[in-house]
């Protein structure tokens, strides 16, 4: 099993532990990850102002993966949504595709829709499979309650992203439950984390994060589980800022999915970057049953 790993821009600069944990988990599961140095921005931040710049950025990445003959493994939900959207738009609009391919030809690239864009969670769920994952787990949590944050740009628009059922998704819950943890039902599970407006309308972005955190806490969750650097930064960096106001309550730590799974695979805490999250999550170790 071999994929081109798409890092995006946020992960290398601000959430390096997500890539490290993903690589450690994939290594353990026998998934080969290939680095393509020429990958660039997925196009997501350009969408507000310049649709063509967005499609061109996304298409270059798709064309690079196609040239390497590899399907993509994407860690960021926003990169995933952006690449899926570009794929969709290029399929619908053949004139745009021809225009984009003229640009790409300058770099000896072309996009012909020859590869598949996958999120990390989809690869683990569909390509590896629940049974194989269960077989690889060496220890499980007991009494741990997790609130999974699905991520808007993976779930919706579902006709474009094809990630899971947009109303009643299961992938993330099932992936969490193989670790022995319980995936709690919480009202804001499918809602926005606020990240798209951080830096634009910070008040609104913080309101969104705060409402999700409160909802997760109410459901009895011990941690929020994320699989997107934007969501992670909202629940880690932005939440730290929110926590300076005592009215917002105690912080609820976020854990990246490959960190949660990695611990059960017996991977070293350091390799998973457990101490690199801003909000301390060392308490998770108390949920492992004494051997």
């Amino acid at each position: 099993m071999k994929f081109a790993l798409f890092h995006g821009c946020n992960i290398p600069a601000r959430v390096a532990q997500y890539a490290n944990a993903t690589e450690a988990v994939c290594d353990r599961l026998g998934i080969e990850l290939v680095e393509i140095a020429d990958f660039n921005c997925c196009g997501y931040p350009a969408r507000n102002t310049d649709d063509r710049a967005f499609v061109l950025s996304a298409a270059k990445n798709l064309a690079l993966a196609e040239k390497a003959g590899l399907d993509l493994l994407v860690m960021c939900k926003c990169c995933y949504g952006s690449l899926k959207k570009a794929e969709y738009v290029l399929h619908q609009n053949q004139d745009l595709k021809a225009d984009i391919n003229r640009f790409l030809a300058k770099e000896s690239l072309q996009y012909q829709n020859g590869i598949q864009v996958n999120h990390l969670l989809s690869v683990l769920y569909h390509a590896v499979g629940i049974d194989r994952l269960k077989g690889a787990i060496s220890k499980t949590y007991s009494g741990l309650q997790i609130a999974v944050s699905y991520g808007c740009h993976a779930l919706r628009p579902s006709n474009v992203t094809g990630f899971d059922d947009p109303v009643s998704p299961r992938i993330f819950d099932e992936l969490v439950e193989i670790t022995g943890a319980f995936s709690v039902d919480w009202t804001r599970k499918l809602d926005c984390c606020g990240a798209p407006l951080t830096g634009i309308n910070d008040r609104l972005a913080m309101d969104m994060a705060q409402k999700k955190i409160a909802s997760a806490r109410e459901s009895g969750a011990h941690f929020i589980c994320t699989a997107c650097p934007y969501t992670h930064l909202q629940f880690d960096v932005v939440q730290t800022r929110l926590a300076t106001n005592p009215e917002n309550g105690e912080p609820l730590a976020a854990i990246l999915y490959p960190q949660l799974l990695g611990l059960c695979l017996g991977i070293d805490q350091k390799a998973l970057g457990i101490s690199e999250n801003l909000i301390d999550l060392s308490g998770i170790n108390s949920f492992f049953m004494a051997e």
Binding site: R14, Y44, P45, T49, P196, T198, G199, I200, V237, V238
Partner: peptide
């Protein structure tokens, strides 16, 4: 500058705001 109202501002909101 219109681009201030795009996710290009994310890092500014995360790191510069304070």
């Amino acid at each position: 500058l219109a681009h201030v109202l795009t996710p290009y501002s994310f890092a500014r909101g995360l790191m510069i705001r304070e």
